[in-house]
Lab assay of single mutants.
Amino acid sequence: SRHTFEINGERWTVEGVSEELKEILRAAERASNDEAERLLRLALKLI
């Protein structure tokens, strides 16, 4: 499935992501810059 999210003013669209990964991306959208970066690094390990 496709998911579009915005982090630090940048929009991203990813396809074929699991519900778990979507949850991480949604958390990154709400997080501070440092926390968002940490969550994105974690998410990339899952891809």
Score class of each variant (00 low, 15 high):
1 S>A: 12
16 G>E: 09
3 H>I: 14
23 E>W: 07
37 E>M: 11
27 A>F: 06
14 V>M: 08
7 I>Y: 04
14 V>H: 01
28 A>R: 02
18 S>P: 08
38 R>G: 05
41 R>K: 14
25 L>S: 00
40 L>K: 04
35 E>N: 04
42 L>F: 08
7 I>K: 02
43 A>G: 02
2 R>S: 13
4 T>N: 08
26 R>S: 12
13 T>M: 07
29 E>K: 04
11 R>G: 04
9 G>L: 03
44 L>E: 05
24 I>N: 00
30 R>F: 09
43 A>W: 04
39 L>T: 01
38 R>P: 02
40 L>E: 00
30 R>I: 12
25 L>Q: 00
10 E>S: 07
45 K>R: 13
5 F>V: 08
36 A>S: 06
4 T>D: 07
13 T>Y: 12
6 E>N: 06
24 I>F: 04
34 D>M: 09
36 A>D: 01
22 K>I: 15
37 E>P: 01
8 N>T: 02
43 A>P: 00
47 I>F: 07
10 E>F: 08
21 L>T: 11
23 E>S: 12
2 R>C: 15
13 T>P: 02
27 A>H: 08
7 I>P: 02
26 R>P: 00
45 K>S: 15
17 V>L: 10
18 S>Y: 04
19 E>H: 08
1 S>W: 06
9 G>Y: 02
3 H>Q: 11
47 I>R: 02
28 A>K: 00
22 K>E: 12
35 E>C: 08
3 H>E: 15
10 E>T: 12
10 E>I: 15
19 E>Y: 05
4 T>E: 12
9 G>Q: 01
8 N>I: 03
34 D>K: 10
43 A>Y: 09
9 G>E: 03
4 T>R: 04
5 F>M: 04
11 R>Q: 15
31 A>W: 03
14 V>E: 01
41 R>A: 13
41 R>P: 00
45 K>N: 14
4 T>C: 15
5 F>T: 03
24 I>T: 02
40 L>C: 06
36 A>I: 06
33 N>C: 12
34 D>C: 11
20 E>D: 09
6 E>G: 00
1 S>G: 15
18 S>G: 09
34 D>G: 15
16 G>H: 12
4 T>W: 13
27 A>R: 12
12 W>T: 02
24 I>M: 10
6 E>K: 02
43 A>N: 01
26 R>L: 13
29 E>H: 05
23 E>Q: 12
6 E>Q: 06
17 V>S: 05
15 E>G: 05
29 E>G: 06
26 R>D: 07
41 R>L: 13
15 E>T: 12
37 E>K: 09
15 E>A: 08
44 L>S: 04
27 A>P: 00
18 S>A: 06
38 R>C: 12
11 R>T: 15
17 V>E: 06
29 E>F: 03
19 E>L: 06
31 A>H: 04
18 S>T: 13
3 H>S: 07
28 A>G: 02
34 D>T: 12
34 D>F: 08
9 G>T: 02
23 E>L: 11
21 L>H: 04
17 V>T: 06
30 R>Q: 12
37 E>V: 10
25 L>Y: 01
3 H>K: 04
27 A>E: 09
12 W>E: 00
43 A>I: 10
25 L>R: 00
27 A>C: 11
36 A>G: 05
6 E>Y: 15
45 K>P: 05
2 R>L: 14
9 G>R: 00
10 E>Y: 06
25 L>E: 00
1 S>Y: 06
41 R>S: 11
20 E>I: 10
6 E>V: 14
22 K>F: 15
45 K>W: 13
30 R>A: 11
30 R>G: 11
1 S>E: 14
45 K>H: 14
23 E>I: 10
45 K>T: 14
1 S>C: 15
15 E>I: 15
19 E>W: 06
21 L>R: 00
8 N>S: 04
14 V>C: 14
12 W>S: 00
3 H>D: 14
14 V>D: 01
42 L>M: 09
2 R>E: 12
36 A>K: 11
33 N>M: 12
32 S>F: 08
